[in-house]
């Protein structure tokens, strides 16, 4: 005997007809997103478990809509991308005036990502930032995270053991790079498997591959 959903009390329901010209309704307090201070939730905390449940549902849902690990990682990347874009401006907004600078070169951008952004999301900076030493790929950089938070509660079934759900974080990084004017492709790679007694079995390397125009611009700006 399921109960019928009840209508909202008349006093809080607008009576006028709805169409897009009417615009959004707001509570009678008049509070909108513009009233809320941007820094209110800056240091607020929730449970890691809460994040883990949401994240694993996100992965499970994506898994049901794709075929194959690559597609799944791509979907997770796509879901992370807008977050990177948003965080870029949110974190820049929160920087004190003397460090409120747009990154002008690759290193400045990646340092912002591996320190400011990583610290905000994961309470610690990334573990390493390296440039590819391969002369054929001067456009590649690697960010290392020994123990990605997003993977901590995820149990990947054996048949999918190449899957790295940190593809979501790769998407966040990619969003930040794209937004800042350094278009790139970012992918997550598990490097911590297979060795006996290794210190960081879950270690993940984020490979950041910048588009050719970014490398060209760096070279050009470096000369002037």
């Amino acid at each position: 005997m399921a109960s019928q959903p009840s209508k909202p009390p008349p006093s809080s329901q607008a009576s006028s007809a709805r169409n897009s010209q009417q615009g959004l309704r707001y509570p009678s307090t008049g509070k909108t997103i513009y009233h809320r201070p941007l820094n209110r939730s800056r240091t607020q905390e929730l449970s890691q478990a809460g994040f883990a449940y949401l994240f694993s549902e996100m992965v499970g849902y994506a898994q049901r809509r794709v075929t194959g690990i690559q597609d799944l990682e791509k979907r997770l990347n796509v879901q992370g991308h807008p977050i990177g874009l948003k965080l870029l401006d949110l974190l820049l907004y929160r920087e004190p005036a003397r460090t409120q600078l747009r990154p002008l070169n690759i290193i400045a951008l990646l340092q912002f990502i591996t320190t400011v952004l990583w610290r905000h999301l994961f309470s610690r900076p990334a573990d390493a930032l390296e440039k590819s030493s391969n002369p054929d790929t001067p456009d590649e950089y690697m960010i290392s995270d020994n123990e990605p938070l997003v993977n901590q509660y995820i149990s990947v079934p054996k048949e999918m053991n190449q899957l790295n759900c940190a593809a979501f974080v790769a998407g966040i990084v990619e969003g930040a790079c794209d937004g800042a004017g350094f278009p790139a492709r970012v992918t997550a790679h598990s490097v911590g498997k297979g060795e006996e007694g290794e210190l960081w079995p879950g270690k993940t390397v984020f490979l950041v591959k910048f588009q050719p125009e970014v490398v060209e611009r760096e070279a050009y700006l470096g000369k002037t």
Binding site: S41, E45, L46, S47, F51, K86, L90, F122, S123, L149
Partner: peptide, 12 residues
């Protein structure tokens, strides 16, 4: 309770 930044959860 192990904690994380709230905005990570909100954005996710």
């Amino acid at each position: 309770v192990d904690k994380v930044n709230a905005e990570l959860v909100t954005l996710t």
